[in-house]
Write a protein that binds this DNA or RNA. Structure first.
Lengths: 253, 253
DNA sequence: CGACTCGTTGAGTGATATCAAACCCGGTGG
DNA sequence: CCACCGGGTTTGATATCACTCAACGAGTCG
């Protein structure tokens, strides 16, 4: 067998963690045409209102976020993405982008042809299932964010975001669970939780004073994860982490 | 040909509006086993934390909503559903429910076997595509709600919800565009937009005083839809209505 | 006729926004 | 090496939107 492309290998691994792939599935992924690309920090991957791009991004490294704008000019970040995420699943079968996607740090991607990906998703049940799970988890996170922004106070909101980012980065192998370098400015943090950057600042300070986090510049460290989660009203159920660890293959074939 | 089941016919029509189905696709849908069921107003269709049900609901009539709870007991409604919606797509391939679904009014459904639906979605590309579109539009609405709750003031928030419900009800053939009977109590309205029922009440009054809506008990009437939409910062892009326009039922009759 | 739910209104409070200024720090150019 | 610059952070003072608490009214059901 020829040596496999290491990038497609990553995609295979990701999909295989969500549903069990047979040899034909793997071969189909390895046949996928793609190019590598990188985006500098505030670059747009996709702009609201545009028709979908010819390519779909799979994140190899770096961070990205989705955002929408209100008429007042206020911005709302609606999700954050990292290594291993597909950025375009949310538009895979839609005719127009309802939000923008931007690079948050230097973003490295594999750009896969959209039509080829659509084909795979529709024609290969196991791959389709894996992609469904990915898209559904995204949607679950959206729902949690509605709750976060709609019904929690500032303290819980930012604590919740800190927890989510921490856990997801850990799951993606980007940190251990004890802390990380905040990838967001306080302004962006505010845009993600529906607060002002000023208030985010005060809230972070309060969390630190209460001993829930420790900060050094951009780094946040969690000494008492349990207490932080309690303050955040955080339950990991909505991340459906069980579905990225152990594949179950009901419904496949 | 034997007379077709009128309920499965509805499902076929719905799917056909999203992707073009061939004869085999239609036959597969018509072969779906289902039972009718109805839920009385506050009944749960699905409870947060539970494993998925054996059946998936397709709404034939009435309204339903999704909700999540904060630790404080505060409730957040994260979406509203009506005739023609599938209620369980958001969990179709997940192992645990991350939110609850409840009947908002007398809810009439067709309950389709989950495994059969999974099978259809994965094995039949056209049906899979139609379901993808449905699920992705749900997700798009979630994103808009994050923006609504996170970055708009009370006036715009409730106006936005009024607009969305109006347009979706109109698209589902439940009203004309000029007004409708509010299906939500003010408390529920508040839970949907992240406000108190008291403040919703005042906000509705203000909208009425400004001539943006007219109210008679539970009925709301829109005289100046344009102005209301402006106040709501409403753009229908996120509903992706172009993708539900009833096209192409090739080979149907 | 109670008993209930839903809607309405008022008064007082509080959480978060706004406005404004200073500060910190890494980077750049003189 | 220093001066300056600019983005991000921090802090204070004040304003405001939405919440809380409380009461009452209207409709409905048993």
């Amino acid at each position: 067998m020829p040596p496999k492309d290491p990038i497609l290998e990553k995609i295979v691994r990701k999909l295989a963690s969500r549903a069990s792939l047979d040899e034909a599935d793997r071969a189909a992924v390895f046949a996928l045409p793609y190019v590598r690309r990188s985006y500098e920090a505030p670059a747009y991957v996709l702009r609201e209102g545009e028709p979908p791009r010819k390519h779909c991004s799979f994140v190899l490294g770096g961070l990205a976020f989705r955002q929408k704008l209100a008429a007042t000019g206020a911005r709302q970040i609606v999700s954050i993405h990292m290594t291993g995420d597909f950025l375009d699943l949310q538009h895979l079968f839609l005719n127009r982008a309802d939000h923008s996607v931007q690079a948050l740090s230097l973003l490295e991607t594999a750009e896969i042809e959209r039509s080829a990906l659509q084909e795979l998703v529709l024609q290969r049940p196991a791959i389709g299932k894996a992609m469904w799970i990915d898209a559904l988890i995204d949607a679950s996170i959206f729902r949690e964010w509605i709750l976060n922004v709609g019904r929690r106070d500032a303290r819980a909101r930012v604590a919740h975001l800190l927890c989510e980012v921490s856990i997801r980065m850990e799951a993606a192998g980007l940190t251990d669970g004890s802390g990380y370098k905040l990838p967001l400015t306080q302004e962006q943090l505010g845009d993600a939780v529906g607060l002002t950057s000023v208030h985010v600042n005060r809230t972070l300070r309060a969390l630190a004073e209460q001993g829930l986090i420790r900060r050094d510049k951009r780094y946040v460290h969690f000494d008492d994860l349990k207490a932080l989660r309690a303050a955040a009203d955080f339950s990991a159920l909505y991340l459906h982490l069980d579905q990225s660890a152990t594949p179950d293959d009901s419904g496949g074939h």
